[in-house]
Amino acid sequence: MEYTTVRSFFMRFNKDKLFKICVDNKLAGELKKSSYTKDYLSRLLVEHALSGKFSLRKLEILDLLHYHSSTNKKWNVYELQGKGKGKDKQFVLNDPEEFEELMDKELKSYLNCKVCVLAENNMLLARISVWNENPNLLLSTTSIYMIHIPGSSHVLLSTVKAAYKTYFYKALENLFGCENLKEIDLTGKKVGPLCDLVLNKSSQGSFSHFRLNQVDENPLSRKRKRDSGEDSDIENNPKTFNEEWKKDQKIKTQTLKTFGSNPQPSLEKIEFKMSTRFKAGEYVPELADSEETVNCFVRFKGTNVLEGIQKLCEHGLASQPLPSHMRNIHSLSRNYFILTDKKRPKEN
């Protein structure tokens, strides 16, 4: 372990985190946090690490937890297809060590690597640091981070270098005993919503009411305002009268049917790639019968795109019923769609 690598490792954390680690290891703490500089704290920790008092595993765990707590890391979702056929491997949550051993064994046959697994929040978090010639465990650029929810057939991975991809996927296929590791078109920055979309695929939208036990309420309890939407003052006031209450009511019921009244899982972007024929032939007669495909790419970006679409519908800015490729996004567990024309039947 060289000084520079260890120091760059520690400098990645912010000052609060460094202070906390120092306090946990009884290195500092007599004075207030503000009286230390980040530089000093990191130097303390580096010296502590180099003198061998910080085990490598502890550093790995630090890195792993830090990666998972940061909110701007991109995760790709993979599906384990054909799982359970042949080998019967059940990864129990209280055995991250066994998982780690098995993973290490599988990966070692393909790559030079070191695996570290933690169990947290019902998920198995793994950090695999890969190296070419010199083992350099602390560099995060060559590390692959993985999340697996035990019992499910999905895995979340951070971006894997192209050189390692095939070997890594093969090793994972062997590890989970599945036929094929397929990348599904779902990416995002927040782990929770991604897991929600993938695990609860068939109970999103209005079906979420069944999953969250919001039907069959006690008829004697007070009517919940949640289902009737926010009661704006203008509706309740007897002195006002909305002339278009029927239309508004219709919009409300349609939106409720499509999206349900529970918060939507947050996706940062939804992309549509369209390759269709030119359809505005009435305005441009020359191209009316053109067979050429027109490529178009639409991207929706935001903090929670699904909720944005829901709000558009609620406020009457999106015409309902929505087309199926917008209406069913929450149940399709993907955020990259390719829309093409229906194939015309061959005319004889």
Binding site: D233, I234, N237, K239, T240, F241, N242, E243, E244, K247
Partner: peptide, 28 residues
């Protein structure tokens, strides 16, 4: 519009008022 309507109803008048709102004409 909604704030405007609310403000109108807060005014004290000697006659009763009703405010009807619509987002387009003709009225349904």
């Amino acid at each position: 519009m909604e704030d405007f309507v609310e403000a109108m109803l807060q005014m004290d008048t000697s006659y009763s008022t009703q405010i009807r709102t619509t987002t387009s004409l003709p009225l349904p």
